[in-house]
Design a protein around this nucleic acid. Structure first.
Length: 335
DNA sequence: GAGCCGTGGCG
DNA sequence: TCGCCAAGGCT
């Protein structure tokens, strides 16, 4: 009953996305492309639809099939992901593509999907339901918020997570699992939004305990977060007369792991200068950037040089678009 | 369980 | 300007 109400709403208000099969087409028998769905769900982890669109289009143009992606060079995939953030996703994306290719295609059950790199509880449920129309309970930030409000759950996250998961499972219908999964997330993204939810036009307004109690907008409650410290550092942009720029590939794990980068000092309260070669360095400004758990202020230095580097490698055509945003900012400052 | 891990938009 | 937040996963 409730699910039917939501699916009726979704039939009218669904949003077009490059990886989606619209409800009418799905009813007519069109089947989603599992590669496209999986790629979209990984990109959408903690990332908005608006940010994902262009990257999804770029990836499917560069690598039309999961086999193509599996055969790609790591550096090309990391460069294509640059700017989207959470770079471990790109490393796991490649691992997953290679495992899927080795086993001859995507598994079509939630349990098997869950064993693949970069696929956790949410993504396994999302791909199983959206790509293969299997009944599965998707529980993301949207669904948590919707369930917390519908049932006026005042216990804060993450303590309430299993309660919310049970409530979400109870509400999941047997019919149209893929459309339902997308519908409940769309509801959270467009109606049951974090701030000032549009309760007046919500298809589920009748049974919403949070709305009736007048506390919908306050839910879900969350534990207070820690303040972000500020770290400092130096970043060095060395250019040769032929135009090449000195770059580094970051270590494979940790912050910005595996990404192309500019040479920097350590990022601390009081960083020591650490130029990658001897040259007449000039300070040209600073770059501010905020990561997940700290603020960063980098002093930007440039030099024209023919000196030999002590670390890194020269890149002929340095493209800010191939770099994580903090380095793109520094490079653009120098250009 | 809790820390780590990006980015851009929004109020 | 700044904290919050988004279709989380890994360790």
């Amino acid at each position: 009953m409730d699910a039917t109400t939501l699916l009726d709403w979704y039939d009218i208000h669904h949003r077009d996305m490059p990886w989606r099969v619209p409800p009418a087409a799905r009813k007519a028998g069109e089947v989603p492309n599992p590669y496209h769905v999986w790629l979209s769900e990984v990109m959408l982890q903690q990332t908005t639809v608006a940010a994902v669109r262009a990257y999804h289009t770029k990836f499917t143009a560069l690598w039309p099939t999961v086999e193509d992606l599996a055969a790609a060079d790591d550096a090309d995939v990391m460069a294509a992901w640059a700017g989207l953030g959470y770079y471990a996703r790109a490393r796991n994306l490649l691992k997953c593509a290679r495992e899927v290719t080795a086993r001859g295609g995507f598994p079509n059950t939630e349990a098997e999907l869950l064993t693949l790199p970069g696929i956790g509880p949410y993504t396994a449920a999302a791909v199983a339901s959206i790509a293969f129309d299997r009944k599965a309970t998707v529980l993301d930030g949207n669904v948590e918020r919707v369930m917390a409000r519908l049932h006026a759950i005042e216990e804060p996250l993450p303590d309430s997570k299993e309660t919310l998961r049970t409530l979400a499972a109870e509400r999941t219908p047997d019919a149209r699992p893929g459309d339902y999964a997308q519908a409940v997330m769309d509801l959270g993204a467009t109606i049951c939004t974090p701030k000032s939810p549009a309760c007046g036009i919500c298809p589920w307004m009748k049974g919403c305990a949070g709305r009736i109690a007048g506390i919908a907008a306050e839910l879900p409650r969350k534990r207070p977060k820690k303040a972000k410290p500020t770290r400092l550092g130096h970043v060095y942009i060395a250019r040769r007369p032929d135009g090449a720029t000195l770059m580094e590939t970051r270590p494979p794990k940790g912050l910005l792991g595996g990404m192309l980068a500019l040479p920097t000092s350590e990022w601390t309260d009081a960083p020591s200068p650490a130029p990658p070669l001897e040259a007449g360095w000039r300070e040209i400004g600073e770059v501010r950037h905020t990561f997940t758990h700290f603020h960063l202020i980098l002093t930007v230095w440039t030099a024209e040089t023919l000196a030999a580097e002590t670390r890194g490698h020269w890149v002929d055509q340095a493209d800010p678009g191939d770099l994580p945003t903090v380095f793109a900012k520094a490079l653009r400052l120098a250009l």
